[in-house]
């Protein structure tokens, strides 16, 4: 196998990695917001159940969670969900990352001085206006460094999809390496993850800079 065929084959894996990465972000970042509000809910059972959910998501390996979503339906309930792997992967990744994002958002919310709520309340802003106009923009600025960390971790965590033999770049690297007895696929995969994270860090830094006009 020539280097260029190797690169081409792995290129398809890279696209699937990017797909998994992008869909997970699109799903988990907003869902994290919902989870955060559920965790802060005044209805105790909702807050409590949400805390249990977060504890499980953070307390068990993501790799294990992926296996549960893929094979759990069959072993637990005898339901066959077909051979498609992406749905199980997306459920696993999104639910896991939503829990982490929820905790990041919560720390941002909790760090907001109560005076901001009081000032907005006195001026007559509704609760919804207060959240979207006053609180959220400041929370985003506060949590951005932690979010960057999480996104970078996600780039690397997509390799866990190999446990379901999903044909993302890490799985393919392993396959080619075994069949061609070559170390090069791992180097290519390594460079790919590094470059991907370099781009992520670059973009996030730009966003952080764009919010530096205030303290």
């Amino acid at each position: 196998m020539t280097f260029s065929t190797m690169l081409l084959t792995m290129g398809e894996g890279m696209l699937l990695t990017i797909l998994l990465f992008a869909l997970t972000l699109i799903g988990s970042m907003p869902l994290g917001m919902v989870v955060m509000f559920m965790e802060k809910s005044r209805i105790k059972p909702i807050a409590w159940l949400t805390k249990v959910y977060i504890a499980i998501m953070r307390g068990t390996p993501l790799m294990l969670q992926l296996l549960v979503w893929r094979f759990g339906p069959y072993y637990l309930f005898g339901i066959s969900i077909g051979s498609a792997k992406l749905p199980a992967l997306l459920i696993g990744f999104i639910l896991n990352y939503a829990a982490y994002f929820a905790e990041i958002y919560r720390s941002g919310m909790d760090s907001m001085p109560v005076g901001q709520y009081e000032a907005a309340g006195i001026l007559g802003y509704t609760k919804i206006q207060t959240f979207f106009k006053i609180i959220l923009p400041q929370v985003i600025k506060r949590v951005l460094p932690s979010v960057t960390n999480e996104v970078i971790t996600l780039v690397k965590d997509t390799s866990l999809a190999s446990v379901l033999a999903y044909a993302e770049v890490f799985s393919i690297a392993k396959q080619i390496s075994a069949s061609q007895t070559s170390f090069i696929p791992f180097v290519i995969a390594g460079v790919f993850y590094f470059v991907a994270n370099f781009i992520v860090a670059f973009i996030m830094e730009r966003i952080e800079k764009s919010m530096q006009y205030y303290k």
Partner: peptide, 24 residues
């Protein structure tokens, strides 16, 4: 307030203008 509690992400003008526009 004692601690002013201005909205830090709004300019001075917007701090003064925003409530009359979006509340009233």
């Amino acid at each position: 307030f004692q601690q002013f509690n201005l909205f830090p992400h709004y300019s001075v003008l917007k701090n003064v203008m925003d409530a009359p526009v979006s509340v009233l």
